[in-house]
Amino acid sequence: KNHHYKHYKIDYILQMKQSNNLHFIGYATSKENSEDMVYIKFKDKSMSEVYSIPDWDFNVDGYLLSELEQGYTIDYMSLECHYNTWCNINEWRDELEHFDGLQKYLSYCQKNDINSNIIGIYSNNHINIMDMYKENNAGYDIIASTSIGSHSIVLGYNRRKDEYVTWRTSPNRNGGYDIGYYYSNYKDAFKNYEGRCNDILEKHLSFEKNKTKPKEKSFER
């Protein structure tokens, strides 16, 4: 609504809940010059503060990942911005300082189906930063995951208990983790993981077969 910024487009918006109030901040770039970026603060759904960010100053680690560590969550991010974020993280993966913020961002990507296939829309170069994600559930680090169709099987390990577990879940984990089988040794755990992966593969192939199987022709007498 601000006439001066009508040619800017929102890259992403972050929100934080404090004392039952939601606070929003956003970042936008000029459609005419991608190096022109502004920081926007929202109050009562109106823009209350805005200032320019020098192109040399902005970086994903110092802004986005740092703010996620401070308690902000992603409310909106354009797919183009996700692509730029993935490129930036991939380029500086060994020098990032805000590890917790990185994990929050990668968790968001997983839950919202932002993956290497989607990012590949913007580039022919294969970029995948999900190998940096340290997925954890109930104290178990997820050390292996297989997704087939809409189903996933994961293998987890709890260092403190020295215990393994396999769970059923979904690729984006939105359905949570259920039906866990626990093991005291890796060999038995992986055998169960392998079997459960084969089960979802067989069910998926059976579904695909029934879906694609030609209908039998009927003959008129």
Rank of each mutant, 00 (worst) to 15 (best):
E135P: 05
E135F: 09
E135W: 06
E135K: 08
E135R: 07
A138F: 14
G139Y: 11
D141E: 15
A144P: 03
A144H: 06
T146C: 08
S147L: 04
S147G: 06
I148M: 07
G149Q: 03
G149W: 06
G149A: 08
S150H: 14
H151F: 11
L155T: 04
L155E: 03
G156A: 07
G156K: 00
K161N: 12
K161E: 15
K161Y: 12
K161G: 03
E163H: 14
Y164F: 15
V165A: 00
V165H: 06
V165K: 02
W167N: 02
W167R: 01
R168P: 01
R168W: 09
R168V: 13
T169L: 07
S170R: 04
S170V: 12
S170F: 05
P171D: 08
P171E: 08
N172S: 14
N172P: 02
N172E: 10
N172Y: 05
N172W: 01
R173F: 12
G176F: 12
Y177L: 00
D178F: 14
I179N: 11
I179A: 09
Y182W: 12
Y182K: 00
S184Q: 13
S184W: 09
S184T: 15
Y186P: 06
Y186F: 15
Y186M: 09
K187Q: 15
K187H: 13
D188Y: 10
